[in-house]
Design a protein around this nucleic acid. Structure first.
Lengths: 202, 202
DNA sequence: GCTAATTCTTGACGAAGGTCAAGAAGATCT
DNA sequence: AGATCTTCTTGACCTTCGTCAAGAATTAGC
């Protein structure tokens, strides 16, 4: 791939970012230019760590392309709690909000392009225009809704039911995410997920 | 209790509501008067249903006094997923945001006083002043953080560990909430919680 | 394309949790 | 306070899941 192609590729990815935000609210050229001024783009390679537990989070990330997993460290083993794909914001909420050390780890599962908004820049954007405040609120609301659904699934469903639902609603995830990560997302061991799969798919 | 006492009591409860909001942001007299104009206070008796699944949610609630449980109906049995106490907002997020039928049920566990904000009034408040937009965003952020913690606890902890943590961080809940509700919140049967209790407390 | 890692599957076994049922303890109502 | 209803506890049994270990399949690196 030559440089010209690479630039074209990155330009398209950046457009995706704006397209995703336009789902929330219309943006004019000035808004878009401000977004670029107050953000930074970064490409992470497969398995690269984006953010590690113990640090204080100063950034909000937006997935332009790729897939990120959120995992926690439990007695040396890691447990995946969430996946972020194109169009989603990533943030270690408690650490970012209250400036306490984070328990979260974020890792790129595949080559992943993120827009990064520092706290300073985010605050500036929120001040500049109520549009960005609205985007922030809607993005937060959407993430809250998906978190509430996950909790509901833990309280109301068996591991097998959660597996079936994930297969129906987000089956592509199985194509891009190692099964062991999905297992812990579903709250079971890799071996159990393997057996559930066999049982369900025959 | 005579009428005079009742009014005094309700006045104090209402002040609590404003006090809680002042934790988010300073409010002047005009803000406070607007909040009263665009909300309604209602007292629910013990075990009274506040909102039932299948309906479309048009309201956000704020707990002034009392305790509310969120539960889902699973094959005729109910599973408690969350408790709301003084100072928290309650909302059937997906239903309220996208106007689809809700899966959530909200029930008062004790006599409970709520401030009710209709969608219409909420939108009006958000338009009137960026202060209310800020309150909305912070309240949403806080609920998101607590949801993320719950998911983390399901993914990283055993039922016994979740029990111990709840005992440490929110032990009062055991004084006001029937144990069977806490059991399903922890993701286990009432019998299992009973055994965990015996094991942990001796 | 071959080798070396890594990941996934399978079996065996033990630990943990669910269910049913019956009795104890606690709450509620008049 | 006594009767009734509900909730909590306990035991027995069974199902499900986790763990360990070994082999199969897939992926990654050279």
């Amino acid at each position: 791939m030559n440089l010209g192609q690479t630039n074209l590729y990155l330009a398209r990815m950046t457009d995706n970012f704006i397209e995703y935000l336009k789902n929330y609210i219309p943006l004019d050229k000035e808004d878009i230019s401000k977004l670029y001024t107050f953000s930074e783009k970064k490409v992470y390679e497969k398995n690269e760590m984006i953010f590690c537990e113990g640090k204080i989070s100063h950034d909000i990330y937006f997935v332009v392309k790729g897939c990120v997993r959120l995992f926690y460290n439990v007695h040396g083993k890691d447990r995946t709690a969430f996946f972020y794909t194109e169009g989603q914001f990533i943030c270690a909420g408690e650490s970012y909000t209250f400036q306490v050390p984070a328990k979260e780890n974020f890792q790129a599962i595949e080559e992943t392009t993120l827009m990064i908004f520092s706290r300073k820049n985010t605050d500036k954007l929120l001040e500049i225009s109520p549009k960005f405040e609205l985007i922030a609120r809607i993005a937060t609301e959407n993430e809250l809704i998906s978190c509430q659904k996950i909790i509901a699934s833990f309280v109301t469903q068996s591991a097998e039911e959660r597996y079936k639902e994930l297969l129906n609603n987000n089956g592509k995830l199985f194509q891009r995410v190692p099964q062991q990560y999905i297992a812990s997302f579903l709250g079971v061991s890799p071996e159990t997920l393997s057996r559930i799969k066999k049982r369900v798919l025959g």
